[in-house]
Design a protein around this nucleic acid. Structure first.
Ligand SMILES: [Mn+2]
Ligand SMILES: [Mn+2]
Ligand SMILES: [Zn+2]
Ligand SMILES: [Zn+2]
Lengths: 149, 149
DNA sequence: AATGGAAGTGAAAACCATTACCAATAAGGA
DNA sequence: TCCTTATTGGTAATGGTTTTCACTTCCATT
């Protein structure tokens, strides 16, 4: 329940990156939110505590975090990218239902175990056949939510 | 092998839409390509045969076709949307490997039968639980292709 | 054939999320 | 503390997509 340094602290030095205040703040914001935040969402949130942090830095940091595998980047079709913390001690593997009417996103983690089993198998087959190293996957179900149909 | 009117001809009148030259041309371009075309790709292709057709119409038409379910729209992370004809007599259900290094997209249709089986099941469960009507799904495997790893 | 309303179109301008640029700053090992 | 270099923030561009608006085409009805 209590502290200790956040679990991502170690990840930076190893790559030759520095752990800075903006990076802390952005990771902290991501870890506290359960939504799918846009770059601007994150900028506004971070900006309250650290008004000096600029939007450019948010974009740069997100790109870095995605490259490091700490954050997932999604496109749900609303014209801006959405970010969420990758699986860690506090987040579970899940996929998404995307409403084409209102853009609502529903996370689901039911049955991901079954999915995962089959996807792992498929991933292995594809890796071999196409000489492609897979490091993550996304599943989107598209349709209409209860309010929109 | 030979003609008859394209299979999509019927789909328009039913919705109160008209079958026009630009729409014909765009569908024709999509049906002849095996790649994942951007709006500009389509514009350039269509423009050769019909120099009068504008980029705006391409965007508008693609939006319409996506709404009608005749075309799928994808975001593979290269900053522009990509389109491909939905499944018909000539196209098969498939999913994608997306290379984070060079952006290469690999279509695969191996094992989609197994996927489909499980996804149909999962889709039903989710539909019911979230009162959400699913009309399509996408699976992306992200990683590095042989040239990039 | 003439008419009128609705659907469709193209050129240009506006939009806006993201990126490039560059001078200034801060992190962290020696 | 000093030095090297990663990092940052403001501003200006970039570029894919959307909006606007006047004009054209389609088609059901006189
Ligand atoms: Mn999610
Ligand atoms: Mn494809
Ligand atoms: Zn909805
Ligand atoms: Zn590649």
């Amino acid at each position: 329940m209590v502290g200790g340094p956040p679990w991502w602290h170690g990840k930076f030095a190893g790559y030759g990156y520095r752990m800075t205040v903006p990076r802390q703040a952005i990771l902290s914001t991501l870890s506290k939110s359960k939504k799918h935040l846009s770059a601007e969402d994150i900028y506004l949130s971070v900006h309250k505590a650290y008004p000096g942090i600029g939007l450019t830095t948010v974009y740069r940091t997100l790109e870095l975090l995605v490259r490091m595998g700490l954050v997932f980047k999604f496109d749900f079709g609303d014209g801006r990218s959405r970010y969420e913390l990758a699986e860690g001690p506090n987040t579970n593997h899940h996929h998404h239902l995307v409403c084409r009417g209102c853009g609502r996103i529903i996370d689901y983690s039911e049955l991901v175990d079954e999915e995962t089993k089959i996807l792992k198998q498929i991933g292995q087959t594809l890796s071999k056949k196409y000489d492609f190293s897979i490091d993550s996957h996304q599943i989107h179900f598209l349709g209409l939510c209860n309010k929109c149909k």
